[in-house]
Amino acid sequence: MILLLWTVSTNSKWIDPLFLPTPQSVWFALLDLLQEGYKGSSLLEHIANSLNRLFLALILALVTAVPLGILCGYSKYFRAIFDPIVEFYRPLPPLAYYALLVLWLGIDDKSKVALLFLTGFAPLFITTASSVQKVPRDRINAALTLGASKWKVFVFIIFPSCLPDIITGLRTAIGVTYATLVAAEMVAATSGIGWMVLDASKYLRSDIIFVGIILMGTIAMFMDWIIRWFQRRHFLWVGTED
């Protein structure tokens, strides 16, 4: 219905093509980007640059937020140290402190990855810490009674119990990180989908803007679908939605 309304309204000249291009012009713009690229880089290179920044930041967030979240959820002393720090910067708009990251790390990918890392760290940390606190204490005490060390309790009891919630936190982290990625590329970048959309807006290329928006939404939906598929396949007892 949306596509039909879009086609009828634009081809009937109800809306100025400058503000809303026709589906045909968007399609031809996509074909042109696939063949010619944009500003010296192919469309796949722009997508790859964006995803490279995103995945690097998510990997860093996973390997730091999950272990630290488990420790903070298990120990009130660790939680007293790290939880106020995370709760302080979590509500801040990412672009508010991005200027500092640019000053410290430069305008290249280091500052962007650092911004995305901080954005994805908070939801993963909070979800993990909250999940640890929900693990039944009887389960932990039973493992300790049977001779398990604290290390084995973390690895074989707490972490598997928290894994479904960690995956859910990862979905949230991907969403906020992906939105921040586009904003970061619009502020200071020379490649990426977000930069391409911003640069096209300077020349009133609304067809390229729509191509970028559609690609960004499609990639985000695909990544979320992968996470939901993994949940349905490995955590059937959680009752994830279709």
Rank of each mutant, 00 (worst) to 15 (best):
F154R: 05
I157Y: 13
A129G: 00
A142C: 14
Q133M: 12
I70T: 03
V63Y: 01
L163N: 13
L163Y: 13
G73K: 04
T145L: 14
V153Q: 07
V182S: 10
P93R: 00
L92D: 07
T190D: 05
R79K: 07
W151V: 07
P136A: 10
P67G: 03
S130Q: 11
L116N: 06
G120K: 05
S75F: 05
T119Y: 03
V113M: 10
L163W: 10
T119S: 08
K202Q: 13
S191D: 08
A114G: 05
I157S: 02
V86K: 01
F156V: 09
T177S: 15
V102T: 04
L170H: 13
L103K: 08
L198Q: 15
T145R: 08
A96T: 11
M196Q: 14
W104V: 02
P67R: 02
S161R: 15
T127P: 07
T128S: 05
Q133P: 07
A99D: 02
I193D: 10
F125W: 09
F78W: 06
L92G: 09
T64R: 03
V102P: 04
I70S: 01
L181A: 09
W151E: 03
K112T: 10
S191W: 10
L92N: 13
C162E: 14
S191L: 13
T172P: 14
Y178N: 08
I167G: 15
A142R: 08
K150Y: 14
V176R: 01
F78N: 01
G120L: 11
G147A: 12
T190H: 09
T177H: 12
A173W: 08
F117S: 02
S131H: 10
R139K: 14
K152N: 13
T172W: 12
V63D: 00
V197G: 07
L68Q: 03
F82Q: 01
A173T: 06
D109P: 02
R139G: 00
L92Y: 06
A148Q: 13
K202F: 04
A200H: 08
S201V: 11
F121T: 00
L118Q: 01
P94N: 04
T145Y: 10
V135I: 12
K150E: 09
G120I: 05
P84Q: 00
K152E: 15
T177M: 15
V63L: 01
L103Y: 10
P123A: 00
